[in-house]
């Protein structure tokens, strides 16, 4: 027998158009309305949610904590952290790109147009763009690209040049090429199927971009192998970098200390909370996962 979820305790979540009785808060619990939730390819779905205006006060690299419906008979107990894929302030919409893999994302995949979806956020420290940077390189794999998309949107708005290296298993799952190109990014797909995604080739591409003056900063998400590579090249060539990290979370606010990752700062190993100290960190301090 499963525990019966209580409708009442989402009462203080804000819907689109609701009056905000506590505007001092910087994080909200919201009820978004599903506008669409469609397959992008065989593995990934793209959800568009209409949300309260306050939820739009978010920026690249931040995340929302999602209360996913259950894909089976049992409750999905904890929220699932997910980085923002796109913010459309004009339409009051937030978008997520996700892989239907675990129980949370499979439940999320079942939501239909018009359904409510409870999300808390925006949470965490996102990407920062130094005004001195004229050109950046983003390197992502799989769903990590979803996290780098709003960064590219932000960079494009600031007139920063973007090279996006999109890593995937095969051409069928190279996502977001059009989206990144829409931001004026030069895209370089690299694939497992033709070997272009292997470390030696990506290293050559990164060094080439530095040589051409197109790499004032590095950004990555989604692959430990690519993080190690970008960290190595960045260190050797003096290119600063940021990485967006993932970890299993409970609270999302920095209270529970579940989502720890190891970092190395001035030779000392330490633990940081991905939810509040990150999820975006200095690439040179990240140890990976």
């Amino acid at each position: 027998m499963s525990y019966e979820p209580c409708e009442k305790y989402t009462d203080s979540a804000l819907r689109f158009g609701d009056e905000d009785h506590y505007p001092e808060r910087i994080v909200g619990e919201f009820l978004g309305e599903v506008v669409s939730n469609d397959w992008v390819n065989g593995e990934y779905k793209h959800m568009i949610l209409k949300v309260h205006a306050r939820a739009l006060d978010s920026y690249a690299g931040q995340f929302f904590h999602l209360l996913c419906p259950s894909p089976d008979g049992a409750e999905v107990y904890m929220r699932r952290p997910m980085s923002i894929y796109r913010i459309d302030k004009a339409a009051s919409q937030i978008e997520f790109l996700y892989k239907c893999e675990g129980r949370g994302t499979r439940g999320m995949g079942m939501l239909k147009e018009g359904d409510d979806f409870n999300l808390a956020g925006p949470l965490g420290k996102g990407f920062t763009l130094d005004p001195k940077w004229k050109n950046i390189v983003v390197l992502g794999r799989g769903v990590g690209l979803a996290t780098l998309a709003p960064l590219s949107q932000l960079a494009a708005e600031k007139g920063v040049g973007i090279t996006a290296i999109l890593s995937a298993r095969n051409p069928g799952v190279v996502m977001s090429k059009d989206l990144f190109e829409g931001f004026g990014a030069t895209t370089i797909p690299v694939l497992d199927t033709d070997g272009t995604s292997d470390v030696a080739n990506v290293e050559k591409i990164l060094n080439g971009l530095i040589d051409e003056g197109k790499a004032d900063a590095f950004f990555t998400c989604g692959s430990n192998r690519l993080l190690s590579l970008m960290k190595k090249v960045g260190k050797a060539r003096g290119v600063p970098g940021q990485v967006a990290m993932e970890q299993i979370m409970v609270c999302g606010f920095g209270a529970c200390y579940v989502c720890m990752r190891t970092f190395e700062i001035d030779g000392e190993k330490t633990l940081k909370r991905v939810c509040r100290d990150g999820p975006v960190f200095n690439m040179q301090e990240a140890v990976g996962w």
Binding site: Y3, V76, Y77, M78, I248, V250, Y257, T270
Partner: peptide, 23 residues
């Protein structure tokens, strides 16, 4: 204290088990 090794939380059929270690 840094606390316990990760993972510090696992979902179960009716909740979570967690082991934080008083960081």
């Amino acid at each position: 204290r840094l606390g316990n090794p990760t993972p510090r939380m696992a979902e179960t059929e009716a909740g979570i088990i967690q082991s934080i270690g008083l960081p």
